[in-house]
Every structure is written in structure tokens, then in C-alpha cells.
Computed example of a mutant assay.
Amino acid sequence: MSDSHGSNGTEDQALVILTSDSLQTQGMAMILSNAMQQQGTHLHILLCDAAGDLAVGGYTSAEAINTPPSNPAGQVKPEGMLNMLLDNGATVDVCAIYLPNSENEEDDLLEGVGVAAPGHIAEMMRDPSIPVYSF
């Protein structure tokens, strides 16, 4: 087996950690995550701080972002893209400290979104075969 990502015999995985409250940063993180997922990468998405709001049912961004001309979607919202990633098999969790430090409870999270166990996230971060991307 090769050490390169996407090598034969191993599942290509990536950990995307999103903490930013910036609409453009959230949008770009979701656009890049979508591209990785379309290329066969199994995504683990960890939403912390203000980005955790994307995983709350009923949350709506203040405005949509314009996508590049190469993307026929036109305008998108990060929470809509997150739902699409979930529907396509991404693992999505909020940080372990998100709920205790917000007005939300676990029942408020979108279906399929969990609460991250720090030990499991730390294992992925330490695994040299799983790249970590932070936004």
C-alpha cells in the first residue's frame, strides 16, 4: 500500500474543521468539501464556535454567497451545502463544547449531526493518512 491519499485498498478520508463565522469562509469550506466528496473522499466535518450554528435545524444565513462562474449553482448558503454533504454521506459533528456554550441542545441539531468525542477527533488529527483542513 502506498502512503499517498486515495491509494488503492484504503478509503480516502479528510477532516474539515470549520470555526469561522465569515459567510465567505463557511461557503468556501463547503464548496471545497463538496469537491473532495465528489472526488471520492469520505468527509468528517467538525463545526465549532459560530460555525456550529450551521448544524442547527432552522438556521438560515443572513444572505447567500455568489459562486464562481464555473459553478452553475449561482448562489448558495453554507447550511444548504452542509445538508447536501450530509445527504451524500459526510460525517458531521459539532465540537464537544459547542452545545454547552450555546442556547442549543442536541435535539436542535440537524438529523445525522452528532456531538464530537474529543478522543476520536484527536485520533483522526494524529493519523498521518487523514489530512486536516481548518477554516
Rank of each mutant, 00 (worst) to 15 (best):
G74C: 01
K77A: 03
G80T: 06
S134Y: 13
L54F: 04
M36G: 03
S22T: 06
S134E: 14
S20H: 06
D12Y: 04
P100W: 02
L43K: 10
E11A: 12
T25V: 15
E63D: 12
D87N: 08
M28F: 13
D108A: 05
G114T: 00
G112F: 07
A50C: 07
N71R: 09
C48Y: 04
Q38R: 09
E105I: 09
A29R: 00
Q37M: 08
N104Q: 15
Q24V: 11
F135G: 12
V132C: 08
A122Y: 03
T41R: 06
S7L: 03
T91M: 11
L109D: 02
F135C: 11
N8R: 09
P128E: 11
M1V: 10
D21Y: 05
H42A: 13
G112W: 01
A35Y: 07
D87W: 03
M124W: 12
P131H: 03
S33C: 07
K77P: 02
P128C: 07
P72D: 15
I17Y: 08
A14K: 04
A73G: 07
L46Q: 00
P128H: 12
V56F: 00
S20N: 05
C48K: 10
L43H: 08
P78S: 00
S4Y: 10
S22L: 04
V115W: 08
T19R: 14
S2Q: 14
S61Y: 02
D21S: 14
A64Y: 06
L47I: 02
D3K: 11
F135Y: 15
A50K: 13
T60G: 10
N66Y: 13
T19Y: 13
I17M: 06
N88Q: 15
G58I: 05
E105Q: 14
D21A: 10
M28S: 13
E123Y: 08
M28Q: 15
N34P: 03
K77T: 06
N34Q: 12
G74V: 05
S7M: 01
L86N: 08
C95V: 09
S61I: 05
P68T: 13
L82V: 04
A90S: 11
G6M: 01
D21V: 00
N104G: 04
G58C: 01
D49F: 11
P69M: 02
R126K: 14
N8F: 10
D108T: 01
R126F: 14
D108S: 07
Y133N: 13
M125E: 06
E63W: 09
S61W: 05
D93S: 04
I97D: 01
C48F: 05
V16K: 00
A55V: 07
A29I: 04
Q75L: 08
A73S: 12
M28D: 15
A64N: 02
Q13P: 00
Y98N: 00
L46I: 04
M84V: 14
M36T: 10
E105S: 15
S102P: 02
F135Q: 14
A62W: 07
S4G: 02
E111L: 03
S70F: 14
A116Q: 00
E63G: 09
L86C: 07
P69I: 08
D87H: 05
H44P: 01
T60R: 15
A122E: 10
P72N: 10
S61H: 06
P100N: 03
A62L: 12
V113E: 06
A73Y: 00
D12M: 05
L43W: 10
L15W: 08
N34K: 10
E11Y: 02
